[in-house]
Design a binder for these strands. Structure first.
Lengths: 294, 294
DNA sequence: CGTCATTACGGAATGCGTAATGATA
DNA sequence: TATCATTACGCATTCCGTAATGACG
């Protein structure tokens, strides 16, 4: 295989069409340059330069090889730069998981802040429930998650992004909308309930069950996505407990009522990541970001 | 700058994720491979492999650099092949000039034969009068011409492609079309004549003047292109002497009549090229072609 | 103590620069 | 004879392989 020095030598001679000047440009003497070209031609297996003792000229093969040589040199020059950019986290790919609800509120401002810090980093977004994010972070398929507790603090580092209160979602024109005060447990004891899945949306399920006296006989649906919940409420299938950010969904026919004791901002959203940070882009992000979105 | 050996070493290690096996694959021992990678990393300016004494793993920068390294190796492998193909004339570019009349007859079959011999050669076609072809061949802007004599035999080599007879082009319904015999000089002594330019189409001009008694007072137009001539005949501006292949033009309103003594096939078309053949594709063509198109 | 990457060291090969040669106008 | 590419030769550097070292399970 030829060497980059040989390529550089050939390019210089091809451009100068003069061994002496080319050698000068390369800060060397003619003889080694002459030998470089000879070796290169032998390796390539074709005459690249036609040299009459008076003038130097590119052959057709030499013209074609010159293009390839320039491409090679350009690629070789750029490759380390790319690698260093990625190593420093200024380039690369950041894969972020987020829950449907966080997509409505925090995701936009967060992405804006990230792209300010890492302008050349490609960002891969996936809507995933917390459990899927956790396993993605463990296998390395994900770099950062926007998810809800609980998660293993030994494996994951995290930052609380915000807390919000739970609301009661009811159909428009439902009697409870006339209440004009916080909804109490006895107010919905006879209402059909749309509940969270205790497995798929364990966080919400536990939160609701812990905070409110739920009659399980009233549960008419068990779902895992907040969007599904609100849609079912709009279809008048029952009432549901949702985080405040569900109000951003903008679904028609649903009203959101405050819950008594619901203003304790119990619903948390965290940015979480594997403590063993492997992606330099994530390392740089964590170094520079202020988790200060309102 | 790094070397191709370093790149090959890095690719092998990145694929095997094991210095020992990679070294084996490269027919060398581990220590120099280890040093190659170290040097490469130093040159690149980023850690490419994370090596724990138990396992080897690519860093993100390493993954990106691996792609670049593969591209470089592939390009470097292909470049000499391309150069050799062009040197042997199996690839490259062949620039051919042709006269308008030859475009109607010989050009098609000739191109078919050429592309059979040089399937990977790009062919550049330009319609040019003989004089333009000659200068193109001299400056190297053209590799091969399809042109008419005379040309300098010391500079150009040539091959007679075919001879054809001259015809008299007359407008439809012209009295001469009733003749039903070869046209003689006295038949057109009073006809308006469309003649060739003595400078731009010297070959035809000389040929006609030498063979036929022309009354220059009858000349109403002097043009250089056969297509122009035939168009003027169709417009009933006069009669003209054209080579037989002009019948292929398919212009409406023109009849072609045989000339007395015109069947001596005096109009020649030659393939001509500079004796100093520089284009390998032309060299290969001349080696393999049978100039045997009917 | 076995595995596997890295450092230590001696020898061969590569490749530079200086000097000589050759070829051409 | 001047110019310019090429060959000749001596020396420094590079880079391999073998051997020794070091770290980790």
């Amino acid at each position: 295989m030829f060497t980059f020095d040989q390529l550089a030598g050939f390019i210089a001679v091809a451009e100068e069409l003069h061994f002496g000047r080319a050698a000068e440009r390369l800060n060397m003497t003619q003889p080694p340059l002459s030998r470089q070209i000879q070796r290169l031609e032998k390796i390539v297996g074709a005459e690249l330069l036609e040299r009459d003792n008076r003038k130097v000229q590119l052959t057709h093969a030499g013209q074609a090889f010159l293009e390839e040589a320039r491409r090679l040199m350009a690629l070789a020059d750029r490759a380390p730069v790319t690698a260093r950019r990625i190593a420093s986290g200024r380039s690369g790919l950041l894969r972020i998981g987020f829950t449907a609800a966080s997509g409505l509120s925090i995701l936009g401002p967060l992405l804006e802040e990230i792209s300010g810090i890492l302008p050349d980093v490609d960002i891969d977004l996936q809507e995933l429930v917390t459990g899927e994010q956790i396993s993605g972070l463990l296998t390395g398929e994900l770099d950062l998650g926007l998810a809800r507790p609980p998660f293993n603090d030994e494996v994951f580092d995290s930052h609380l992004l915000y807390s919000e209160s739970m609301m009661l979602a009811v159909p428009e024109n439902h009697p409870l909308t006339e209440l004009n005060r916080e909804v109490r447990a006895e107010d919905f004891k006879d209402e059909p309930l749309i509940m969270h899945s205790p497995t798929q949306a364990r966080y919400f399920y536990d939160l609701v069950v812990r905070a409110l006296p739920i009659s399980h006989s009233n549960v008419v649906h068990t779902v895992s996505q907040i969007l599904t919940m609100v849609s079912l409420v709009a279809a008048k299938r029952g009432v549901a407990f949702v985080p405040h950010s569900a109000t951003f969904l903008g679904i028609q026919g649903v009203r959101f009522l405050p819950l008594q004791g619901g203003d304790n901002e119990a619903v948390e959203l965290h940015a979480i990541w594997n403590r063993k940070v492997e992606n330099p882009a994530l390392a740089r992000l964590l170094r520079d970001i202020e988790f200060s979105m309102e």
